Amino acid sequence: RSWVILLFIHIYLSPVFTHCILAFYFSFLQFFPFFLRGIEMDSAALHEEIDSFFESAPPLKDSAKITDKLNQFIQFDSPSGEFRGRRVVCVTSGGTTVPLEQRCVRYIDNFSSGNRGAASTEYFIKAGYKVIFLYRRGTCQPYCRSLPEDPLLECFELADDFNFQVRQSHSEAVKGAIRDHHAAVADGLLLKLPFATIFEYLQMLKIIASSMRTLGPHAMFYLAAAVSDFYVPWKSMVEHKIQSASGPLDMRLMQVPKMLSVLRTEWTPKAFCISFKVRHSGALALLFALEARTY
């Protein structure tokens, strides 16, 4: 009799409980974003914070040259016309720094090796995308992931007093990296733009978004960079190195304005956006995923 009862529960009761759970789950997905909207910063205040951030940030070096590079890259077509009308993706990679002094000696760093962004760039190019690779200086680069940490010293050796050569153990990796990188650049499929600070990153992201706006639905943002949540306003920083003789350091950090919503709704409203959150809790991961849906 026991197996008959278990079979009855499995056939008749399990679907009921399953439907109840699914109904609750989908209701949760439907109505929870409205709760999140209620606690979000209103649009006017958000825009005020964003404007304040950019107005107080130090001017971006070579912004005109960066804009020209972007426009040329986006409009580039191969002589054969093979790459005409390709989709363009901006891949961000590595972590941003927050300077503590204007003539920076100390800074707060969001660590990221950049491996995800570099690997994703390779796959995007392989899939036919043109990639704007916005990366932190010194982090992992596309096509270099199979090379050792110090490729110049570890991959090469002296052949004689006047010449050097690639070590046999690294010859295939070096050959592949050089071939694939130069092919991507020559075909107009890869543009690399470096950043270091949170100020550089967000200013460059805004310029990139403005340049990609004309692409409409052919634009994509793959935001794999580890972006600082807090920063020291430029005008609040001391100019020179903070002196340890002054005693314990007491510093107030401001929140970096959340610009993902503005990126999606104003800078490039038709672009497809992918962002990443580092979360060690499954519940928190779900919470932030639901919050992202409201953008």
Rank of each mutant, 00 (worst) to 15 (best):
F73W: 05
G85A: 03
E149I: 04
T214A: 09
I208K: 04
S171Y: 13
L153Y: 13
H19P: 00
D42P: 00
I66Q: 10
F156P: 03
S2H: 12
F26K: 06
L205T: 06
S281F: 09
D187Q: 12
I132L: 05
E266C: 05
L6P: 00
D187M: 09
I132C: 03
L193W: 01
W3T: 14
P142K: 05
R136Q: 09
Q72A: 11
G128T: 07
G138F: 04
P151Y: 02
K206H: 08
F83L: 13
V262F: 07
Y222D: 13
P15N: 14
S210D: 15
W234S: 12
M204W: 04
I108P: 09
P194D: 05
K65Q: 14
Q203W: 04
L22P: 07
D51Q: 06
G282E: 08
S52G: 09
K130P: 02
T92I: 07
A292R: 13
F133I: 00
S112H: 13
E157M: 11
V232D: 06
F133K: 01
F162H: 15
S43M: 05
H181N: 00
S56G: 05
L290D: 11
P58E: 11
F133R: 02
R213F: 00
F26C: 09
Y12K: 10
A159S: 11
E266T: 08
I5F: 14
E55L: 03
R37W: 06
L223Q: 12
